[in-house]
Amino acid sequence: MSKSDQSLDERLQEYVNAAVQSPPGPPTRDPVNRPMIHHWCDAIGDTNPIYIDEELAAQSVHGGIVAPPTMLQAWGMGGLRGRGPSLPEHARAPAQVGDRDPGPVALLHEAGFTSVVATDCEQEYKRYLRPGDVLRVGGGLEAISGEKETALGNGHFVTNKTTYWDQHDEVVAEMRFRVLWFKPRQRGGE
Protein backbone atom coordinates (compact mmCIF):
# COMPACT_ATOMS: atom_id res chain seq x y z
CA MET A 1 0.00 0.00 0.00
CA SER A 2 1.48 3.31 -1.00
CA LYS A 3 1.54 6.27 1.36
CA SER A 4 -1.13 8.02 -0.63
CA ASP A 5 -3.56 5.13 -0.13
CA GLN A 6 -3.30 5.38 3.63
CA SER A 7 -5.74 7.38 5.66
CA LEU A 8 -4.45 10.24 7.75
CA ASP A 9 -5.22 8.22 10.88
CA GLU A 10 -3.13 5.30 9.63
CA ARG A 11 -0.22 7.54 8.82
CA LEU A 12 -0.46 9.27 12.22
CA GLN A 13 -0.58 5.92 14.02
CA GLU A 14 2.59 4.86 12.20
CA TYR A 15 4.33 7.73 13.96
CA VAL A 16 2.88 6.69 17.31
CA ASN A 17 3.94 3.07 16.78
CA ALA A 18 7.44 4.11 15.76
CA ALA A 19 7.83 6.70 18.49
CA VAL A 20 10.58 6.15 21.02
CA GLN A 21 10.96 7.96 24.30
CA SER A 22 14.27 9.76 23.90
CA PRO A 23 16.88 9.44 26.66
CA PRO A 24 17.88 12.49 28.73
CA GLY A 25 19.26 15.28 26.55
CA PRO A 26 21.92 17.81 27.55
CA PRO A 27 21.41 19.76 30.77
CA THR A 28 18.83 22.55 30.60
CA ARG A 29 20.23 26.04 30.08
CA ASP A 30 20.25 26.88 33.79
CA PRO A 31 20.23 24.68 36.86
CA VAL A 32 17.35 25.10 39.28
CA ASN A 33 18.05 28.53 40.75
CA ARG A 34 16.69 31.03 43.21
CA PRO A 35 16.35 34.06 40.89
CA MET A 36 13.98 32.15 38.60
CA ILE A 37 12.06 30.93 41.66
CA HIS A 38 11.74 34.54 42.85
CA HIS A 39 10.44 35.75 39.48
CA TRP A 40 7.93 32.91 39.45
CA CYS A 41 6.67 33.43 43.01
CA ASP A 42 6.38 37.19 42.48
CA ALA A 43 4.37 36.71 39.27
CA ILE A 44 2.10 33.97 40.64
CA GLY A 45 1.76 35.74 43.99
CA ASP A 46 2.94 32.63 45.83
CA THR A 47 4.22 33.53 49.30
CA ASN A 48 4.90 29.98 50.52
CA PRO A 49 8.11 30.51 52.54
CA ILE A 50 9.63 27.15 51.53
CA TYR A 51 10.34 28.70 48.12
CA ILE A 52 11.73 32.04 49.20
CA ASP A 53 12.73 32.26 52.88
CA GLU A 54 15.87 30.37 53.88
CA GLU A 55 15.27 30.57 57.61
CA LEU A 56 11.67 29.32 57.40
CA ALA A 57 12.41 26.76 54.68
CA ALA A 58 15.03 25.25 56.98
CA GLN A 59 12.23 24.46 59.46
CA SER A 60 10.08 22.73 56.82
CA VAL A 61 9.93 19.05 55.85
CA HIS A 62 12.36 19.92 53.07
CA GLY A 63 15.02 21.34 55.38
CA GLY A 64 15.80 24.17 52.96
CA ILE A 65 14.68 26.12 49.92
CA VAL A 66 12.86 24.14 47.22
CA ALA A 67 11.38 25.14 43.87
CA PRO A 68 7.59 25.27 43.48
CA PRO A 69 6.70 21.83 42.08
CA THR A 70 4.30 23.31 39.51
CA MET A 71 7.22 25.32 38.11
CA LEU A 72 8.56 22.06 36.62
CA GLN A 73 8.08 22.87 32.96
CA ALA A 74 9.72 26.29 33.22
CA TRP A 75 13.14 24.73 33.86
CA GLY A 76 13.16 23.15 30.40
CA MET A 77 11.79 26.05 28.38
CA GLY A 78 13.96 27.43 25.60
CA GLY A 79 13.52 31.12 26.38
CA LEU A 80 13.26 34.00 23.94
CA ARG A 81 16.01 32.85 21.59
CA GLY A 82 14.89 29.24 21.73
CA ARG A 83 18.10 28.26 23.44
CA GLY A 84 18.24 25.14 25.46
CA PRO A 85 17.43 21.62 24.45
CA SER A 86 13.76 21.36 25.08
CA LEU A 87 11.59 23.65 23.02
CA PRO A 88 8.29 21.85 23.55
CA GLU A 89 6.81 19.93 20.65
CA HIS A 90 3.71 22.08 20.54
CA ALA A 91 5.81 25.18 20.00
CA ARG A 92 7.78 23.80 17.06
CA ALA A 93 7.06 24.86 13.53
CA PRO A 94 6.71 21.88 11.22
CA ALA A 95 9.98 22.71 9.47
CA GLN A 96 11.84 22.32 12.73
CA VAL A 97 10.58 18.83 13.32
CA GLY A 98 12.85 17.34 10.69
CA ASP A 99 13.65 17.82 7.02
CA ARG A 100 13.59 14.28 5.70
CA ASP A 101 10.63 13.08 7.69
CA PRO A 102 8.07 15.84 8.07
CA GLY A 103 6.57 14.22 11.18
CA PRO A 104 3.02 13.99 12.43
CA VAL A 105 2.62 17.73 13.03
CA ALA A 106 3.44 18.45 9.39
CA LEU A 107 0.94 15.80 8.32
CA LEU A 108 -1.69 17.48 10.45
CA HIS A 109 -0.80 20.86 8.92
CA GLU A 110 -1.12 19.45 5.42
CA ALA A 111 -4.53 18.08 6.31
CA GLY A 112 -5.69 21.52 7.46
CA PHE A 113 -5.23 21.12 11.21
CA THR A 114 -3.16 24.26 11.46
CA SER A 115 -4.08 25.73 14.84
CA VAL A 116 -2.89 24.42 18.16
CA VAL A 117 -4.04 24.80 21.74
CA ALA A 118 -2.81 23.09 24.91
CA THR A 119 -5.59 21.09 26.55
CA ASP A 120 -4.16 18.94 29.37
CA CYS A 121 -1.09 18.81 31.53
CA GLU A 122 -0.39 16.07 34.06
CA GLN A 123 2.69 16.34 36.25
CA GLU A 124 3.96 13.79 38.76
CA TYR A 125 6.67 14.79 41.18
CA LYS A 126 9.06 12.15 42.58
CA ARG A 127 10.75 14.78 44.73
CA TYR A 128 10.89 18.55 45.10
CA LEU A 129 13.69 20.28 43.20
CA ARG A 130 16.37 22.28 44.99
CA PRO A 131 18.57 25.16 43.83
CA GLY A 132 21.61 23.64 42.12
CA ASP A 133 19.78 20.63 40.70
CA VAL A 134 20.84 20.07 37.10
CA LEU A 135 17.99 18.77 34.99
CA ARG A 136 17.98 16.87 31.74
CA VAL A 137 14.86 16.30 29.73
CA GLY A 138 13.76 13.49 27.44
CA GLY A 139 10.58 12.03 26.11
CA GLY A 140 8.52 11.85 23.00
CA LEU A 141 5.24 11.23 21.28
CA GLU A 142 2.88 8.96 23.19
CA ALA A 143 -0.49 9.11 21.45
CA ILE A 144 -2.53 10.77 18.68
CA SER A 145 -6.30 10.56 18.76
CA GLY A 146 -8.59 10.11 15.81
CA GLU A 147 -10.40 13.19 14.54
CA LYS A 148 -12.61 14.65 17.28
CA GLU A 149 -15.29 17.30 17.19
CA THR A 150 -14.50 20.07 19.67
CA ALA A 151 -15.83 23.52 20.49
CA LEU A 152 -12.89 25.02 18.59
CA GLY A 153 -13.36 22.88 15.51
CA ASN A 154 -12.46 19.35 14.45
CA GLY A 155 -9.03 18.21 15.48
CA HIS A 156 -6.60 15.59 16.75
CA PHE A 157 -5.26 15.38 20.29
CA VAL A 158 -1.50 14.80 20.40
CA THR A 159 0.02 13.61 23.68
CA ASN A 160 3.71 13.93 24.47
CA LYS A 161 5.42 12.48 27.51
CA THR A 162 8.34 14.28 29.08
CA THR A 163 10.67 12.86 31.72
CA TYR A 164 12.97 14.97 33.89
CA TRP A 165 16.22 13.51 35.27
CA ASP A 166 18.58 15.04 37.83
CA GLN A 167 22.37 15.09 38.08
CA HIS A 168 22.30 11.60 39.62
CA ASP A 169 20.36 10.18 36.64
CA GLU A 170 17.31 9.77 38.86
CA VAL A 171 13.88 10.54 37.44
CA VAL A 172 12.55 13.52 39.42
CA ALA A 173 9.33 14.18 37.52
CA GLU A 174 7.17 13.06 34.62
CA MET A 175 4.75 15.05 32.57
CA ARG A 176 2.09 14.33 29.98
CA PHE A 177 1.22 17.32 27.82
CA ARG A 178 -1.70 17.16 25.40
CA VAL A 179 -2.40 19.63 22.64
CA LEU A 180 -5.22 19.86 20.12
CA TRP A 181 -4.31 20.53 16.50
CA PHE A 182 -7.53 21.77 14.94
CA LYS A 183 -9.13 23.32 11.86
CA PRO A 184 -10.34 26.72 13.02
CA ARG A 185 -14.04 27.24 12.41
CA GLN A 186 -14.86 29.75 9.70
CA ARG A 187 -15.89 33.03 11.23
CA GLY A 188 -19.56 33.67 10.64
CA GLY A 189 -20.00 36.23 7.85
CA GLU A 190 -22.36 39.00 8.77
Partner: peptide
Protein backbone atom coordinates in the same frame (compact mmCIF):
# COMPACT_ATOMS: atom_id res chain seq x y z
CA UNK B 1 2.51 26.79 32.83
CA UNK B 2 1.08 29.69 34.78
CA UNK B 3 -2.28 27.97 35.19
CA UNK B 4 -0.29 25.18 36.86
CA UNK B 5 1.42 27.76 39.04
CA UNK B 6 -1.86 29.28 40.26
CA UNK B 7 -3.19 25.79 41.03
CA UNK B 8 -0.09 25.05 43.12
CA UNK B 9 -0.39 28.34 44.96
CA UNK B 10 -4.11 27.85 45.58
CA UNK B 11 -3.46 24.46 47.19
CA UNK B 12 -0.61 25.46 49.49
CA UNK B 13 -2.26 28.81 50.42
CA UNK B 14 -4.85 26.54 52.05
CA UNK B 15 -2.72 23.67 53.38
CA UNK B 16 0.22 25.63 54.69
CA UNK B 17 3.88 25.10 53.89
CA UNK B 18 4.47 21.44 54.72
Amino acid sequence: LSSNGFVGRYITDWTGPN
